[in-house]
């Protein structure tokens, strides 16, 4: 049986313009494609990944343009469609002034106090 892994994503917008992706969300999506049973918990600044309407288009350095800007909200939605459970820490969203109505519908909200019990559902917990 596949090991169950919870990937906690804390750092946000690290290299996402150069990569046209968040490399940790990308890796977890790839791990899921390769049969690992992963779930994602967005915490700290990474809760912003669940905000609808992110737009990093228009970046250009002389003749060099960013052809495919990252669309992290759509990447989160793609994870959810793939069957990856995505959680988000409500206090972290509230502290950053993110209103509930701006959050993607497929992301499950939980409070900080619920994190220890969430861990029990997984064989491994990785903190990125």
């Amino acid at each position: 049986m596949s090991k169950k892994v919870l990937s906690i994503v804390e750092t946000a917008y690290r290299g996402t313009l150069e990569e046209q992706d968040d490399t940790i969300l990308w890796l977890n999506h790839a791990l899921k494609n390769n049969g690992l049973d992963v779930a994602v918990l967005l915490r700290a600044n990474a809760v912003n990944y669940a905000v609808r309407g992110q737009d990093a288009s228009g970046l250009r350095f002389g003749e060099g343009a960013l052809a495919h800007p990252p669309e992290i909200d759509k990447d989160v939605e793609a994870l959810v469609r793939k069957g990856v459970k995505v959680f988000l820490v409500t206090e972290d969203a509230r502290e950053r002034g993110i209103p509930d109505e701006k959050l993607l519908p497929g992301v499950e909200k939980l409070g900080r106090a619920q994190i220890p019990s969430l861990f029990q559902r997984f064989d491994q917990v990785w903190h990125w």
Partner: peptide
């Protein structure tokens, strides 16, 4: 937050 996580785990 990391210390609180440790305490929360212990409390559980």
């Amino acid at each position: 937050n990391f210390r609180d996580l440790a305490s929360g785990l212990a409390k559980g």
